[in-house]
Design a protein around this nucleic acid. Sequence first.
DNA 1: TTCTAACTTGTATTTATTACAATGTAGAAA
DNA 2: TTTCTACATTGTAATAAATACAAGTTAGAA
Lengths: 148, 148
Amino acid sequence: MKPVKEIAKTISASGLKITPQRIAVIQALEKLEHPRAEEIIREVSEQIPGLSPTTVYNTLDALVSKKIIRKVHTEADVMRYDAIPDHHHHLYCMQSDRMDDYFDPELDKLLEDYFRKKNIKGFRLKEVKLQLMGEFENKDKTSVEKNA
Amino acid sequence: MKPVKEIAKTISASGLKITPQRIAVIQALEKLEHPRAEEIIREVSEQIPGLSPTTVYNTLDALVSKKIIRKVHTEADVMRYDAIPDHHHHLYCMQSDRMDDYFDPELDKLLEDYFRKKNIKGFRLKEVKLQLMGEFENKDKTSVEKNA
DNA sequence: TTCTAACTTGTATTTATTACAATGTAGAAA
DNA sequence: TTTCTACATTGTAATAAATACAAGTTAGAA
């Protein structure tokens, strides 16, 4: 676990104020593995009785905006559905929340070859999904179609 | 848009019963782009007044389990956080909801080269995130560490 | 045509997250 | 060190996505 001093420095360097809550949140983030907010709240509450869940949400948002931590696995907080069951990836723009399909058999082949050679210890790989994060160059939904 | 007949056949072939609600949900899925449940509910409600949101959720779950459609962008419905701001990917097991970090500079290099050559029309790519879906071979959290 | 498992509905809950007003405090400036 | 204020925290309440469940309905097999 990182020393408190170092954590404090990181917080301070980003322009945020150092508070016991923030330090504890970062410590929890390091101790737990990809925790959800609720787990962090539970963990931090042990050290800081009377902690408000709102504080944890605020803190997480603040840390994310300063790029000290990341949100993972999803950018939007809701489930989305896809009518196309064939294997494909997604282009996604966080600003607009727009998502387009991306087909690229050449890339799939490349990845397949790569992971056939590379063995990930302790993990049986079944499927590789890519999220291509970026920005769409115009608003027209049909402009990026089946990206060949 | 696919003809109703074909949609009906797909539903039937999977062992599910053909209902107006299910056909309308699939049509909505094709019309809308990666809709969230709420958008589907709104769309389908126009054709089927008195539609229950529960039906849409049930239908989506049924279609997903039959692999007629997919859930995208997230498998769990909650936000998760990551203390490591460095670029890395994730190993994820849907069954256990376990997620591990995955570092692979060689792969990143490969992808960087690939996308430098390949220009995605209408999209300015900023970051490539991989979700490696599969199963962990044992329950020990520390067994898959910094996967070299 | 009958019958039953499968499906839909509607209400009530649960749970994650956000809004907001009041209070408290970190840390810059005096 | 003390003061001061913008930034943080708290707590309550509201919102919204998703689920549970009991009751009624229907697809489609027999």
